[in-house]
Design a binder for these strands. Structure first.
Lengths: 223, 223
DNA sequence: GATAGTTTCATACACACGTTTGAAATGCAA
DNA sequence: TTGCATTTCAAACGTGTGTATGAAACTATC
């Protein structure tokens, strides 16, 4: 029975450091020092540095996608098979933001790591990352049901922008804080989520390709 | 009189490679090979790898900021000192997108390099990057004049989201293309700019903090 | 408690990196 | 041409990296 104590310690330390400093700036020696294990332990338990990164990515990617889908299904179930567009986007960006922002910095590591992944393209990740497309397609399908009058292009752009705002908020919290001199409260995660969702929905609803844009946008913005 | 032929070749090659593959994946040997110069030339002309990056960044950063400000001033002049919010955001995201997207890949290098800069935080850049805050503050000031009823926080978020959508579009063109199976046309740069500006403006106008959100959002989306 | 399998450890290897060196080549003024 | 400064070049240096090795320590089964 292998005691995966060392394994776990390595994974935790690696994720923490990668999230903080990025892949290229973290060496195996940094990781083993942080995890208080021997240098050779990484290669013994994971085979190589790349496989360690890949394992981290697969684990977190699956968890994030599962959480997103869980919330999407819940929203669709509640609406009898058709979820509101706002709820769909909330299911998409919520898990990412919740994991990255907020005062409690412990759980932030996982999602911050995923953001790193979306930035730096280390070889082992690029292969796995194509699966994300399929995952996102499920959200496009849900959006299609929510906004049947919209052309697909508009939905793609809407999803793209929603993710853009969420990820950039995580990535560049520092700049936003400096620019606003702390006025933009990133600790209130739910408020940030609503903000992202609101703008994304507005952009979708008011899309020039769909009819009745005026009333729809007005209805949303009046909430 | 120093013939800066080598210098220029190094700068061009470095920018091209950094834009393509990021800083950490490009070695000096890659650069000098691409530029067809000797390995020692980099240290002779620039002192170190970091100083080469810094020089690239300073040059491009100044150029981008200058272009942005030029367009902002033009918009303000045309409006008699007060520019429309859409024109302000256009002046902000336009130069970035124009430099990065579009079919002609030659000029794309410069802006794509700047995007890399905004992603990877190599030490020499982090120092210089604080100046960007001051630059962005000028746009906040212009936005304040355009939307005097808005609280500053809303303006910060609006600017943040506009930049987010622009930068993510540049950064993740590939994912958007794959997801939409080529339906999202990123080659029509001006259309992309309008798309980003429109969504950002909608988010600002319909901001819950300002009065009369409904009519404003309706007016914009009806255009 | 002996033994086989698993895990840890100190150490070393091979390599790629940024940088340095000193000589050769080049350009330019007198 | 001569003399001097600038620029190029091949080669090497030192360092930090991921990985490999083989012995030691540990664990569990009989």
């Amino acid at each position: 029975m292998p005691s995966d104590q060392t394994r776990t310690a390595i994974l935790a330390a690696a994720e923490r450091l990668y999230a903080e400093r990025g892949f290229s700036d973290v060496t195996l020696r940094d990781i083993v020092s942080e995890a208080n294990v021997n240098l050779a332990a990484v290669n013994y338990h994971f085979g190589s540095k790349d496989e360690l990164i890949a394992e981290l990515f697969v684990t977190r990617s699956l968890a994030l996608n599962r959480e997103r889908l869980r919330r999407l299904r819940a929203a669709e179930e509640q609406g009898g098979g058709r979820a509101e567009i706002a709820d769909i986007l909330r299911a998409l960006v919520g898990p990412t933001l919740r994991g990255c922002l907020g005062p409690e910095n412990e759980r932030a590591t996982a999602a911050r790591f995923m953001i790193r992944v979306s930035i730096e393209s280390v070889p082992p990740i690029r292969r796995i990352r194509n699966r994300e497309i399929d995952h996102l397609r499920k959200f496009v399908a849900a959006m299609r049901r929510a906004l049947p009058a919209h052309r697909d292009v508009e939905l793609y752009w809407g999803l793209h922008f929603a993710l853009a705002m969420a990820q950039q908020t995580v990535r560049d919290t520092e700049r936003l804080a400096k620019l606003s001199e702390g006025q933009c409260d990133v600790d209130d995660v739910e408020a940030v989520i609503e903000r992202v969702v609101r703008v994304a929905v507005l952009g979708l609803i008011a899309s020039p390709a769909s009819g009745k844009t005026t009333e729809r946008a007005a209805a949303v913005s009046a909430r």
